[in-house]
Simulated assay, not measured.
Amino acid sequence: MPQSPSTSKAGVEHREITPGEAGQRLDNYLMRQLKGVPRSRIYRLLRKGEVRVNGRRSKPDYRLEQGDCVRLPPVARGTPRPLEDLPLPQGLAQTLAGAVLLEDEDLLVLNKPAGLPVHGGSGVPVGVIEAMRRLRPQEPFLELAHRLDRETSGCLVLARNRPALQAFHACLREGGMDKTYLALVAGSWRGGPRRVQQGLTRDARRGEVRLVRVDEEGRDADSLFTPLAHYDGATWMEVKIGTGRTHQIRVHAAHEGHPVAGDRHYGDFAFNRRLRRLGLRRLFLHARSLSFTLASSGHSYHLDAPLDPDLARVLERLGDPETP
């Protein structure tokens, strides 16, 4: 008869953030410190204020600084399943090996496939980061530098050392990152480029997904939409984002009356059904390029992820485009 994992409950702990730990998000820090505690439980501890930084409540995305004092509450910790025991889905290793766009001493960049989450959770035991650590057990340090939605493909950066990770995060915070996406949206976009600056806030949960909505009191979000071509009932778009909020492009596009093709949560049902007949089986959103310079090395990067063949075929089946 199989035995259930053992659990232990430690007392309150106070940890001082070292120079090597500074710069990372609080939630990521907690994942490492509270091994065996479910991700959902960690976020609940944060919401309830049981985790404190310098005696105060802190949000999951707070960036830890050297010398911060983090209070870890007493919490039952299951014995984590060894990483080497987690099965990789069939074909995933080959897919990720073929997805590498760039690798140097600081960064590993992938053209992330659609449908693959960047980390495990919500019923998916293995995401990109868990799989890459399995595939590269010799790597002393490998961390997600940012995130993409599960259904979005394209440029995903992993850091191979702490200084590179901190420098990448500084680019994100200080506006030193150019991020360009490609999307197919419903309807004929009128006019040329349009900047959408609408605040966003988390809304109700639908299944495992926490939805987002436009809210004047929400977090600032900035998206620049530029039409590249018009099709019958659809527009091919370039989107540059100055912020990186959850579902930002999808919610801004829907707010403008032009939801992204294949979007199950914010999209147009009839439009999605039409595109499905043309072979679209996913969200038509692709992180095309990233440009930035790492202060830690002075190295400038321009990363470009080619459009997936399945998306290119959908565009071909829409017929001849008209330029704006």
Rank of each mutant, 00 (worst) to 15 (best):
L280D: 12
A167W: 05
G233W: 10
V185D: 07
A270D: 13
F292T: 12
E322P: 00
P309D: 08
D85Y: 00
V53T: 04
L303D: 09
V53L: 04
N111D: 15
R219S: 15
L108W: 11
S289I: 07
H265D: 15
E13H: 04
G257C: 04
A170H: 09
N54T: 02
C155E: 03
L182K: 04
Q138M: 02
F168G: 11
G154N: 01
T226R: 14
V12W: 07
G11Y: 02
V37N: 09
H247W: 11
L280A: 12
D222W: 07
G257L: 02
A99F: 07
P306C: 02
P137E: 00
I241T: 15
R15A: 10
M1W: 10
L30Q: 11
G262F: 12
R44S: 15
A76T: 03
P137N: 01
I129A: 11
T7K: 01
P137L: 00
F225N: 05
R150D: 07
I241Y: 14
E105K: 06
A183L: 06
L148H: 09
Y181L: 05
R282T: 14
L108Q: 07
T79C: 03
L165I: 09
G115I: 01
P193G: 13
R313S: 14
D308C: 02
L283E: 13
Q33K: 11
A10N: 12
P163K: 00
P73C: 02
L110N: 09
P87F: 04
G319C: 03
D263C: 10
N272H: 09
V260T: 12
D215Q: 06
A167P: 10
L26Q: 02
V212C: 14
M132H: 02
V212H: 13
G192L: 01
R162E: 15
W189S: 09
P163G: 07
G191I: 01
L156V: 05
L182Q: 13
I17A: 09
V196D: 09
A114C: 05
V109C: 08
E216V: 08
G127E: 04
K112Y: 08
L26I: 05
D203H: 13
A170N: 00
Q3P: 06
R44F: 14
E84P: 05
A99N: 05
M1Y: 12
P5R: 00
M177P: 10
R245M: 13
D178C: 05
V251L: 08
P113S: 01
L318P: 10
G262C: 12
E13D: 06
V100T: 14
F168V: 06
I17F: 11
G218H: 05
R160G: 14
L278I: 13
R281P: 12
H247S: 10
E130H: 02
V260W: 10
L228M: 15
R52M: 10
G120V: 01
Q166V: 15
